[in-house]
């Protein structure tokens, strides 16, 4: 029982990180119908930028954890957003009207560029960050096993829930969100109404990248290490999460992220850690057989 609760907590934490990354996949897919394969690497860049920001702030003598954390969050989000913007501008926009596979190939190229750039600039070895937030709450203790909820885990889950709420509001209630949804459905018509479609797409990448940066910081705080390859693995998982939840759907991305996080954690805890990815992907395949559009994907019931 205690063991189960502990795994649940760990799974939800991991799932939150996947969910935040998955939001970026799903938003970009929603608006331009393309998988941004470089998104996982944007997440990795976000984590590295956070690490660098921590080091710089520490050397400047800013060591109060809440302040440092807030500054790192802002700096990493802003710079990563810039990366996201640049990726769209350089690799996708020029190809928007060419054949369908072109932006996909360009995305894979962009992913390789980002990985290698960070590998060369930061080295191939794993970079550690000393734990910043230590301690936690003991929830249960039966003498042999203690259920721990760490402060980092609380931070991750609370941040994720808050961001999810803000984004749902943004997409459903604001003008920008409405413009994004309009672009999703009919770009040309949206431009006929006076909306700058290029700008709307740029902003989608900017927001997706900012979310990935938050995920990167959370990852850094949780695991304490980053490496240039982390974006590939996490990216594939988050992409799977987005598809599982129903690509294009924001709640779907979050749900998918949670499910992948939970499956992975429980499988490693009860069966074998080597097969955790096999389990996650098998479940994806099974779900897609019965629900081809994912769990919360919209069934296409439209009059044309």
């Amino acid at each position: 029982m205690e063991y189960f609760v502990q795994q649940l907590i760990n799974g939800v934490t991991l799932g939150s990180i996947y969910g935040l990354i998955a939001l970026g996949y799903t938003m970009v897919y929603g608006i331009i119908g393309m998988i941004n394969f470089a998104h996982g690497d944007i997440f990795m860049v976000g984590a590295f930028l956070a690490l660098i920001a921590f080091v710089v702030l520490t050397s400047l003598g800013i060591t109060a954890i809440p302040l440092a954390l807030l500054l790192v969050l802002l700096i990493a989000m802003a710079l990563t957003a810039l990366y996201g913007w640049a990726v769209e501008r350089v690799a996708y926009r020029p190809l928007r009207h060419s054949f369908r596979l072109a932006p996909l190939i360009s995305a894979i190229g962009m992913s390789i560029v980002l990985q290698n750039f960070v590998q060369v600039a930061q080295g191939a070895r794993v970079k550690p960050l000393p734990p910043l937030i230590e301690g936690g709450i003991t929830l249960l203790d039966n003498g042999t096993f203690r259920v721990e909820l760490s402060y980092v885990q609380i931070l991750i889950v609370v941040t994720t829930v808050a961001l999810m709420a803000v984004f749902t509001w943004l997409i459903t209630r604001t003008r920008l969100g409405r413009d994004m949804r309009a672009c999703e459905q009919d770009m040309r018509m949206t431009s006929l109404l006076g909306v700058n479609v290029d700008r709307t797409i740029s902003l989608t990448f900017v927001f997706g990248a900012a979310l990935a940066a938050v995920a990167g910081i959370m990852y850094l705080l949780y695991y304490g290490v980053v490496d240039f390859y982390m974006g590939f693995v996490a990216g594939v998982k988050a992409f799977t999460a987005a598809v599982l939840g129903g690509i294009g759907s924001l709640p779907g991305a979050m749900l998918g992220g949670l499910l992948i996080g939970l499956i992975e954690t429980f499988w490693s805890a009860y069966f074998s850690i080597e097969y955790k990815d096999v389990a996650a992907f098998s479940i994806l395949v099974i779900v897609l057989i019965f629900l081809p559009t994912g769990i919360l994907g919209r069934p296409e019931v439209e009059k044309v």
Binding site: R175, R178, R181, A182, D186, V195
Partner: peptide
């Protein structure tokens, strides 16, 4: 070319 997944009100807002 109305936005089929948006409400009438949202279409008018667009």
């Amino acid at each position: 070319r109305i936005f089929s997944r948006m409400t009438v009100f949202e279409n008018l807002q667009m």
